[in-house]
């Protein structure tokens, strides 16, 4: 019988196409760039930075990268930074400023 009623379908994957036991490959967040969620980005004043690592530790998304003892600062990966501002809030020297993203 041909159905007259067209039902709303929210499904994304067919039963037969699901991975066995509903598993996932690891590290898939690398493919999922969350940087475009951001409305403000952290900007570091390297003059005031004391390389304490608070931003690196507090970042809930782990986007900060240690640039090493020569460079002596941490850099946010803007592909993934969601702009939450935790780093700016926790910075003991207040040398991170959240700058509004221009659209």
């Amino acid at each position: 019988m041909k159905n007259k009623v067209k039902i709303t379908m929210e499904a994304t994957t067919k039963v037969g196409d699901l991975p066995f036991g509903f598993t996932a490959q690891p590290g898939t967040t690398r493919e999922f760039k969350t940087g475009d969620w951001r409305s403000a980005r952290p900007v570091l004043d390297r003059e005031k930075c004391i390389y304490c690592g608070f931003c690196y530790i507090y970042c809930p998304d782990g986007v900060y990268k240690d640039m090493g003892p020569k460079e002596k600062y941490y850099q946010a990966d803007l592909d993934f930074c969601k702009g939450c501002g935790v780093c700016a809030n926790e910075c003991p020297k207040k040398c991170i400023q959240m700058v509004v993203e221009e659209v």
Partner: peptide, 27 residues
């Protein structure tokens, strides 16, 4: 092959959002 293996890692016990939950239960 369906196991946690450090040489071939997988994630088990995932979130099943409304878009896939029904299909997982049916499977």
């Amino acid at each position: 092959a369906h196991k946690l293996d450090i040489t071939k890692p997988i994630s088990m016990g995932l979130l099943g959002a409304p878009e896939v939950f029904t299909e997982i239960k049916k499977a």
